[in-house]
């Protein structure tokens, strides 16, 4: 997994609430057996017309946002299906950070497994960041994970909270399974005890 330290990038505004994972990556693209190559299909139904041409009204199709690496999105981002294809598609498109007032649990969790930083801010802070994102390619937002802060193009600083274990893994690009394997003796012991106390499991 790629490390996440500090990101200086264009942010795209997506104020719509309840952007679900079906919107982020529709089901026809879940038939892949790979993790890669989903970026071209991200936000497919909003991004492309029925004839396959680009929908010029969709934010990520606008010239000012084509290079965006940050999304500033409405409440409850990533709700619905557990599909990890959603963060895979975002990452493949180039999105490394999503900022919102809240995220659905499974999506939030999936982001950390893929080097994407989801940041939770207050409603007021989101409005400020949304305004900043509206400046498009004229502006750069700075997301600093080490110091847990976002700096707008105007130099306003917003601090954010984060689970320290998740932060550690993201900054160092650590593999969860490798870390858990170090504790596998506890699992062996637990399993042996369960075999005695709950043999039906």
């Amino acid at each position: 997994m790629e490390k996440f330290e500090k990101l200086t990038a264009i942010a795209a505004p997506m104020p719509l609430i309840n952007i679900d994972t079906d919107m982020i990556i529709p089901k026809q693209f879940l038939k892949t057996i790979k993790r890669s190559g989903l970026g071209v299909s991200a936000f497919h139904e909003m991004r492309y017309n029925l004839d396959g041409s680009d929908n010029p009204d969709f934010v990520l199709n606008k010239e000012a946002y084509k290079g965006a690496n940050i999304l500033v999105a409405g409440d409850n981002f990533g709700c619905g299906s557990s599909r990890e294809h959603a963060p895979w598609a975002l990452l493949d498109f180039g999105i490394r950070c999503v900022i919102s007032t809240s995220f659905a649990d499974i999506f939030y969790n999936n982001c950390f497994k893929n080097g994407i930083l989801p940041v939770v801010v207050s409603e007021e802070q989101l409005q400020l960041l949304m305004k900043d994102a509206e400046k498009g390619s004229n502006a750069r937002m700075v997301v600093d994970l080490e110091n847990q802060q976002i700096e707008t193009s105007d130099g306003e600083v917003i601090a954010f909270d984060l689970d320290q274990n998740r932060k550690h893994c993201l900054i160092n690009g650590l593999d969860d399974i490798g870390l858990s394997m170090e504790k596998i003796a506890s699992v062996d012991a637990f399993e042996a005890q369960m075999a005695q106390s709950a043999p039906w499991v």
Binding site: R83, E84, I106, N109, N110, K113, D176, I177
Partner: peptide, 8 residues
């Protein structure tokens, strides 16, 4: 759970 967690 997500696919990374499935693997875990």
């Amino acid at each position: 759970i997500g696919t990374s967690e499935v693997e875990h």
